[in-house]
Simulated assay, not measured.
Amino acid sequence: MRTLYFDCFSGISGDMVIGALIDAGADPVQMEEELKKLNIDEEYKLSWGKVVKNGITSTKFDVILTSKSEQTHEHSHSHGHEHSQEHGHSHSHSHGHEHSQEHGHSHSHGHEHNHNHNHSHVLHHHHGSRTYKQIVEAINEANFNESVTNRSLAIFKKIGEAEGHIHGLPLEKVHFHEVGAVDSIIDIIGAAILIDQLGIESVQSSAIPTGTGHIHIDHGIYPVPAPATLEILKGVPIASNDIRFELTTPTGAAIAAVLAETFGSLPAMTVESIGYGAGTKTFENHPNVLRIIIGENQ
């Protein structure tokens, strides 16, 4: 059985998952094309390229917001706590030179945002946020294949239920702040597309380190793990880690919690490919990367 193992020794976030999948040999250009089915591609550009983290070559994946999204970007970090570490501060160095070859064919965004209401689509801007319900409708309308649709919906539901529980809201009333929503949508659906593309039949994961310390979210200063992350990780083994940083975001936690059938050490397998996905932070003593290992399970 073709198995994917998340080795979360430095935590897990949505962008780290996509970076690691690309690094392991998945095709980001095909993912980019599939994501166009959502009709929000005038709001973002994708960038990916090699970086070195503490001696390990890994792939850094970024969502670069365009048009309206960019105007809200400066104060986006105080919104949607699920993304402050995932993408919030990575846009400023989302490059250009190492990615130009990947994007020439698909991104003529700069001038397109004036037309973004031509689509009769459900995911366009609604006063700075998108509801869980709108995201579900958009996924269902996009006509992804069944496995991509089911994985994406399950991950969003996990996050939506956690946010709803924390804020005392029913699932259909939960909303994602505008910038966080774009990042979540790309990371979650992109991960589902790449996992499907790689023919993965089974997912397993290590225990999840969350980090320690405090984080600024839109409701004030909270301990790490953030409330949503902890809620999502109910029933999942959490690894101890004394790094004072948010290592695992709600999006990363939800991807692991929903997709992994078991949590523990590396299963017996014949390893076929390995991928390293870079996070936004650089630590002194270990690489801030997510490692994925893909192979045939014994």
Rank of each mutant, 00 (worst) to 15 (best):
V63M: 06
V224I: 15
W48C: 01
G168F: 07
S205V: 06
I166R: 12
G160V: 08
F283T: 03
S90N: 14
V174I: 10
I12L: 07
M269L: 15
I217G: 06
I64F: 05
K50P: 00
H111Y: 13
H214W: 11
N54E: 09
I208R: 09
V174K: 08
A239S: 14
G180E: 04
L194H: 08
E98W: 09
H119P: 02
A260N: 07
I135N: 03
I64H: 08
A228G: 01
N150P: 00
S184V: 01
H117M: 13
V122F: 02
A24N: 03
H107C: 03
D196Y: 07
Q71R: 15
Y5E: 04
L171A: 07
V258W: 07
M1C: 03
V236Y: 05
H165E: 12
A24L: 05
H111M: 10
G128F: 01
A154D: 12
P223M: 04
E33H: 13
T149Q: 15
S92I: 10
R244C: 01
H109R: 14
I238A: 05
L266V: 11
N150H: 12
N288L: 04
K158V: 00
L123N: 04
G160P: 02
Q197G: 01
D27R: 13
G190R: 11
G11S: 08
V289A: 05
V174R: 09
D62R: 13
I12G: 02
R151E: 00
T212D: 03
Y132A: 01
S94W: 06
I238S: 04
S129T: 10
D15Q: 14
S205N: 07
N241L: 02
T59H: 10
H93D: 07
H177V: 00
F176N: 02
H79Q: 12
H177T: 06
G11F: 04
E86T: 15
E43S: 13
K50C: 00
A226F: 00
R244D: 03
L65D: 00
I56D: 03
A207G: 13
E42N: 11
D242M: 06
V17W: 04
G279K: 05
R2D: 00
I195T: 06
G164N: 10
E70D: 10
H89T: 07
E82H: 14
E137L: 14
H95V: 11
V271A: 05
D187T: 08
I166Y: 13
H89D: 10
